[in-house]
Write a protein that binds this DNA or RNA. Structure first.
Lengths: 226, 226
DNA sequence: CAATTTTCTGACCAACTGTTCAGGAAATTG
DNA sequence: CAATTTCCTGAACAGTTGGTCAGAAAATTG
């Protein structure tokens, strides 16, 4: 009787639903910051409301529960990531593909460090809310890429000692490290933040390591040559 | 008037203080499990007490506050790690040293996955309680190893494209990954747990990648040759 | 043994947690 | 304009949080 046209995903943005879309986004942004900083259990609705500049009870008008907000936030994050990672495809040239993948992931991680840490925290605690995503879509994505790597190995384009899954994990972990362990990296290198130059340098290094390990030659980084 | 001989660090274990030492250890173990699973804010004293099989109020007899317990736990973890990592030294042979370091870290991470995740969670949230450790002892440790790597580069024993700090981060992140992201690794590989054989295989792979990237030849893994 | 110290616990506290709800404010609609 | 829907909020809810404390129970000591 009361709430009817909840408009599942902000059907029309123009006139109506603009308030809804804007506030939902604000809440999700605030939730991302708070959950990334304190985890699910540690992040309170009060803190999120304060960050978003809204009343606490108002959060629960848009999201029916803390759990629901958290899930919605994870979904938004996963969608964003999928969109950006899906672009990596079989360009035939292994060195090019691996190099592009490394730099894309590194850039992604640096662009959304909070989302990155949110995801890390969730997995760290056993990924209780992400089991379906991990065992479904993500696993398909990984297996598809692993199959490509295996194909390259069979055709002699890649060192046979490479374990496709392990290689993907290596690229993930090394790039992710600069978001998840940012505090440690900064403390150990005496920096205040990671610059574009740092990203370039790290990208160069990781590409070199991965390609050398795969028995490939570095195609060079975009921005260094012509 | 009341508490006097608090006996800072369990002075005598034989007769007196045996109860204290045993209970402190029990509490720390329980706290490790709970904090690793839910983070600092998310881990409650009730949960820790239940896990330890003690009354909640009893925890605060041994540790004056939740914060104090958490700090004590971090200190125990850091001490353990330091003891185990300090063993890695300049054995002159770069390939041997790197290989040993990788396998030691991998084994450590698999031996204490909870401690590993506890540390990860703390750093993930900006390492608020570990700033001193990171900027002090750990930085010294890292800088010392980085200096050794630089020495190797100067003597032509290591590829000049290697960034010492980035290499250490690479080894840390790739090994740590199998503890911090265990849930993801298991979900993506369809396993239930990581076996000794897995550890061996992962160690082989990581050694190959790192050594190849450093322009070194693999000395082989212990347990495969004679 | 008695005296003293150490260990342990239940009750209590104020502050905070997520959530509900009635009803007011604002926006949209016809 | 009035009617209706959407948006927002303060108050109150039951439950949990970290922490205190008086005093019982157990262990140690001489």
């Amino acid at each position: 009787m009361a709430i009817r046209r909840q408009s599942g995903n902000a059907s029309q943005i123009s006139a109506a639903g603009t308030v809804r879309a804007r506030n939902q986004a604000r809440i999700l942004d605030a939730a991302e910051a708070v959950f990334a900083a304190h985890g699910y259990r540690g992040g309170s609705l009060s803190a999120i409301a304060q960050t978003a500049g809204l009343a606490r009870a108002n959060l629960l008008y848009y999201f029916k529960s803390k759990h629901g907000l958290y899930v919605a936030l994870l979904e938004r994050t996963m969608t964003r990531w999928n969109d950006l990672l899906e672009k990596i495809d079989v360009d035939d040239e292994p060195a090019q593909v691996l190099s592009a993948f490394i730099r894309a992931k590194l850039s992604l991680v640096r662009q959304y460090p909070q989302a990155s840490r949110l995801f890390a925290g969730e997995v760290l605690q056993g990924a209780p809310m992400l089991q379906d995503y991990l065992r479904g879509p993500l696993r398909e994505w990984v297996d598809a890429r692993a199959a490509i790597l295996s194909g390259w190995i069979e055709r002699g384009q890649l060192d046979a000692r490479i374990d496709p899954h392990a290689l993907i994990f290596l690229i993930w972990s090394t790039t992710q490290h600069y978001a998840d362990y940012e505090a440690q990296v900064l403390a150990l290198t005496g920096r205040e933040s990671l610059t574009d130059a740092d990203e370039q340098r790290i990208g160069d290094f990781l590409c070199h390591m991965v390609l050398a390990g795969c028995g490939l030659t570095d195609p060079g980084s975009p921005g260094s040559g012509a």
